[in-house]
Design a protein around this nucleic acid. Structure first.
Length: 424
RNA sequence: GGAGAGAUGGCCGAGCGGUCGAAGGCACUUGCCUGCUAAGCAAGCGUGGGAUUUUCCCACCGUGGGUUCAAAUCCCACUCUCUCCGCCA
């Protein structure tokens, strides 16, 4: 959620910045119109209420003076004021809900330095680590290798759950679990994050507060009886859990890491990544979330991205970092780096992490504020990033670490988590 | 699922339907004092919004309705927390 004052005070600038990411000027004009109308009613309502309050006080005074005639003289005015107020209040609340409804569909303002662009083709590569893996034999895609080795079972998964699910078996399941532990351990012990194990079901309001709703309802799994939502990422519970809190600025930044499964309907991605376990309705992810002071958030985005990259460095998997252009950044984000890992089956890099500075966009919706040393209150900034998507990391290991005999070497840092195994 | 208790400012905690935006305490800020991170004294100290913006006004006491000229206070519904019982991994 943007600050309405920002739109009110400098609509042209907001239009210009949001225009870069495809928001039409009419949407902003519409909001300005509703806002103006709403303030007009509010002003009127305020003076009506002021009059009613003074009459009420007057009545109280007359009553204690036992002046029944005086009371009756102004009682009628009080009654009619009350009726008027009720009418104005109804108008106001209607406009208010219209306004907030519109505001909920306005995305975050992109950071000035974000490269202009229309879609992912305009994203900019920032850096590379390692080279595309070379093989002296024909490498296999993980779906072939995994099926042959009975480590991944796509057929049985679809029998019990339909498309876009995978059963991991034996050492593949073990490796998935090892990856989760390795990542969390790295982030807690070396990078200073606090481990959280959050609920996987959240309230509708929590989805709204984190910007996943109302815009992306068709992407979400929900429970009809209770209107709870399966989290699409641990970002949701982590970025919302300080709702309505005031955090002392000396306690910032707060840094959290959480492992959770993520549930996504993947509506509209029918032709994409249909084979293997790259795009699933359920996948494991280790997520990083920070709460920071506004002036620190872009620096914290850099370090968060490095924290995520380091996972790939320890696993010795080649990757690159790209910055998303204005047309490709997510709804809540003002700046985003994607980390892409090398996948031989794609002969290309594939997203394995997305690190974003959300600025105060979620904090405003969730009402997460910081108290400055001087006592002032301000919305916190939140950031999030995958550290990393575990399923895709497993895929990357299968494909980059495969050997001619169809065994898969276990990356050195994972061996302690897998009973010392050097290959599976 | 059943029975009961509760929800008030950063925290604790009062609050007969009418100067209650809310006593008191803690914490915090400022000043004074005391020659040594303590104590004392004084003052200040919630959040959000609107406007004719050095001031005035409005809203907010879990949420949403209702009664009333007037609701933290009365009524209804809901949510959450706690205690006990039942069930249960």
């Amino acid at each position: 959620m943007l600050d309405i004052k920002l739109i009110r005070d400098d609509p042209e600038k907001v239009k210009m910045l949001l225009g870069r990411r495809g928001v039409g000027e009419s949407e902003i004009d519409n909001i300005l119109k509703i806002d103006e109308e709403m303030r007009k009613i509010l002003t009127n309502l305020n003076s009506l209420r002021a009059e009613r309050n003074s009459i009420s006080k007057e009545i109280a005074k007359l009553k204690s003076a036992k002046d029944e005639n005086g009371v009756n003289r102004i009682l009628e005015r009080g009654k009619s004021l009350s009726d008027e107020i009720k009418i104005e209040e109804d108008k106001l609340s209607e406009l208010q809900s219209k306004l907030s409804e519109s505001m909920l569909f306005i995305p975050n303002i992109p950071y000035e330095k974000v490269p202009f662009g229309k879609d992912e083709r305009d994203n900019v590569e920032i850096r590379r680590w390692g080279d595309g893996t070379k093989f002296d034999f024909a490498p296999q895609a993980h779906w072939d290798l995994g099926s042959k080795r009975r480590l991944m079972d796509f057929e049985r998964a679809s029998k019990i759950s339909g498309s876009r699910f995978t059963i991991l078996r034996g050492d593949a399941a073990l490796m998935e679990r090892a990856l989760v532990s390795f990542m969390i351990d790295l982030h807690t012990s070396k990078h200073g994050y606090t481990e959280i194990l959050p609920p996987h079901l959240v309230l509708r309001q929590t989805m709204v507060n984190t910007g996943k709703l109302p815009k992306f309802e068709e992407e979400s799994y929900s429970t009809t009886l209770d209107d709870l939502f399966l989290i699409p990422t641990a970002e949701v519970p982590l970025s919302a859990m300080h709702e309505d809190e005031i955090i002392d600025e000396k306690d910032l930044p707060l840094k959290y890491v959480a492992y959770t499964p993520c549930y996504r309907r993947e509506a509209g991605s029918y032709g994409k990544d249909v084979r293997g376990m790259v795009r699933q309705h359920q996948f494991d992810k280790v997520e990083l979330v920070k709460y920071t002071k506004p002036e620190d958030s872009y620096d914290e985005l850099e370090s968060l991205t490095h924290d995520a990259e380091e996972v790939l460095q320890y696993l010795e998997l080649p990757y690159r970092v790209i910055e998303l252009c204005t047309g490709d950044i997510g709804f809540v984000s003002s700046r985003t780096y994607d980390i892409e890992v090398w996948l031989p089956s794609y002969n290309d890099y594939k997203e394995i992490s997305s690190c974003s500075n959300v600025t105060d966009f979620q904090a405003r919706r969730s009402n997460v504020r910081i108290r400055r040393a001087g006592g002032d209150l301000e919305f916190a900034h939140t950031l999030n990033g995958s550290g990393l998507a575990v399923g895709r990391t497993l895929v990357a290991i299968f494909e980059n670490y495969q050997k001619k005999d169809e065994k898969i070497e276990v990356p050195k840092v994972l061996r302690p988590y897998m009973g010392g195994k050097t290959e599976i």
